[in-house]
Design a protein around this nucleic acid. Structure first.
Lengths: 383, 383
DNA sequence: TGCGTACATGAATCAGAGG
DNA sequence: GCCTCTGATTCATGTACGC
């Protein structure tokens, strides 16, 4: 907004810095590294409460690598399907519980975790999350813009995968960049169903002419997740790093990353890829902020600094109610006195009221909400 | 890493032929009746292997906190019914296991079951299904065309619910009317994500001026399910009948139905409703067939997918105003930040602006409006 | 009757700082 | 931990009502 002469205030006071300080170096964390080994063992080496966000794309090798999840020495008769199934699910649950327990330990109290899966494993993943005390915040549907058709025509085309977003526990004050998501979605709230193309074309990593990894995730998916749930400088860990999509996007978005990966080929591919990824410069990384994260400005400050005059008359949008501004930033009407919020609520007979948007002031360009005065003040006082 | 359905199903099973002889009368079954009582007890009275399909809409176990108010002051009428309250996840699991065990018993060997839920319960539901030996065929996402927003801006808008379709066991030759689904979807394979509006308007049943049931499902949802997975004359059971959407649609589609419901008011409403239900006429059919979603593309999507770079400079046609693209799809100029539409409007001092046509990007063929980029994106990602 | 505006509402795990 | 206060926050429909 543009300042008019009479709105320009004589005294400019500096507001509290809105940007959170970039965390100091974390020498105890292997930032920007791929930990080559089993993720459970590798996570055990990381300090408790040190990770801001985890993105996990766990394997589900029930048929191909069944031995991975079976108890020691268990050779299962293929005929005994019931036992096989039960045993396999139980083993998968144990595996899930193990890596998630470590993940929960290394997460900061306000950290959150994303897990992606399909109907083969996502229900077990979700139930285990809940059993461990993670608090589910959303399930997100990645709706594939161009899925593989069902060639045999025996089922519905499997056109989506499911992601679960959960905070470390019910009390966590998780990060959610609401305003950035709303902006990203053309000024509509971002929904729980995301339409994103599958990974292909130039983005799809090849090795010897064939795809380097069977389930490489699109960078657009990680982009949205990291933008939504982390801040620049945050530490993101991916226990099933694969070809390093998480690392590449984290680097691009100015987030720190750590990966775990057992397969040396994947590690090699990932390292080359992340090496080539270019970080965005800082101005591009700035995103739209919610007022929540902006420095608070008291109405009284605007009075003190002359942005609004003592004795000024303010009114609601319909000009039905009027109030006079007093020296301490309280309002006076016929029947009520109090803060801009209190008086607004009383007049409307409402449980609460945001006085910043309820009250307006007359200008030569018409009525303007107090909030626009506040924005003017913020713009003038920010570094 | 996730396996595809084919990889998970080593045994190739043929789906049941879509045409089937209408079964003889089933005098032992209480067809067209609502069994008034607890569904577990009522199902125990039904013969083993007698039901073709089950649709279940069990309690979600929402675990809501205090009141939630809308921004304009109204209070959200939440689901606070006793039937949705469970003490612990374990209690919910026991309940789930109990009703599903009976459901599995009364299903025919080639029968299948649908269960609907949200992230609060669906993971437990899915895991229990698998534990009991049900074989998951698809998870289906009901993408709500008009969900309730997230009023507090704390999470992603919860815009979908999940349905699981599972056969009684791995060997079941389940019914899937592939052709009917493809026809319903304009000659494209029916996908696993369905766009259907929530139940409202005339369809929403009222009792004494207010909604008769807090969670009435849209008939369009049941229509698609019954059309896909049953044949005329099949017996459909709904253990959580509520206001009888399943019965009403079954009647319209010439399927037999049985319901279980404890609440006498719901029973009464359902009976009246089904009594009034008529065989589907062509016009009614038409309105329910809109499976395709609008291809709406947000500017942020182009940023995420790399169609436009973060840091790119865009300008109006006259090259008078320039702006830089940031990571969340917002624009940055000297004086303004915001969406392409908002910044465009501010610069022109206009109440609104179509950013897609206002902003241009420099290419080797000269300036091109953002809208042409959007068209390129749509061409590349549309089926 | 028709149009434009105002209002109601839907399965919701919906705040955070300061005293 | 509890209580108080500030103040942030909504999309798509359908219906009702006024002109």
């Amino acid at each position: 907004m543009v300042l008019t002469g009479e709105m320009m205030a004589p005294v400019v006071r500096k507001a509290k810095a809105p940007v959170r300080v970039r965390p100091a170096a974390k020498p105890e964390l292997p930032l920007g590294q791929i930990l080559r080994g089993d993720c459970i063992e590798e996570m055990r080496k990381l300090p408790t409460g040190s990770i801001d966000m985890i993105f996990a794309d766990p394997p589900y090798n029930l048929q191909l690598g069944g031995d991975l999840f079976r108890p020691e020495g268990g050779r299962v008769d293929a005929v005994d399907n019931d036992w096989d199934k039960f045993d396999t699910f139980a083993a998968y649950d144990r595996f899930t519980r193990e890596w998630m327990t470590e993940a929960q330990r290394i997460l900061k109290p306000d950290g959150s975790m994303w897990v992606i899966g399909s109907y083969h494993n996502i229900f077990r993943v979700g139930a285990t999350l809940q059993d461990l005390g993670f608090w589910i915040l959303n399930d997100i549907v990645w709706r594939k813009a161009n899925p593989m058709p069902n060639f045999r025509g025996t089922r519905f085309t499997n056109a989506h995968e499911t992601l679960i977003w959960a905070s470390r526990d019910e009390k966590s004050k998780y990060t959610f960049n609401y305003r950035a998501m709303k902006t990203l979605n053309d000024e509509l709230q971002m929904r729980s169903d995301w339409v994103i193309p599958i990974c292909g074309g130039q983005e799809r990593l090849k090795r010897g002419g064939t795809k380097a990894h069977p389930t490489q995730k699109p960078e657009a998916l990680l982009y949205r997740i990291l933008l939504a749930c982390t801040n620049p400088g945050d530490v993101v860990l991916d226990p099933f790093f694969g070809t390093g999509t998480t690392g590449a996007v984290a680097k691009r978005l100015g987030r720190e990353w750590i990966g775990c990966e057992r397969d040396p080929i994947y590690c090699e591919v990932a390292e080359e890829r992340i090496e080539a990824a270019l970080p965005l410069d800082e101005s591009g990384l700035k995103t739209m902020q919610s007022p929540k994260s902006q420095p608070r400005v008291a109405f009284g400050t605007l009075v003190e600094t002359g942005y609004i005059q003592v004795g000024a008359v303010i009114m609601d949008k319909a000009r039905k109610h009027r109030a006079t501004v007093r020296a301490d930033g309280s309002l006076l009407t016929g029947d009520h006195t109090g803060s801009i919020h209190k008086v607004g609520a009383s007049l409307q007979n409402a449980p609460s009221c945001n006085g910043w948007t309820y009250w307006h002031i007359e200008t030569k360009d018409g009525l303007k909400p107090l909030d626009s005065l506040r924005q003017t003040y913020l713009l003038a006082t920010e570094p």
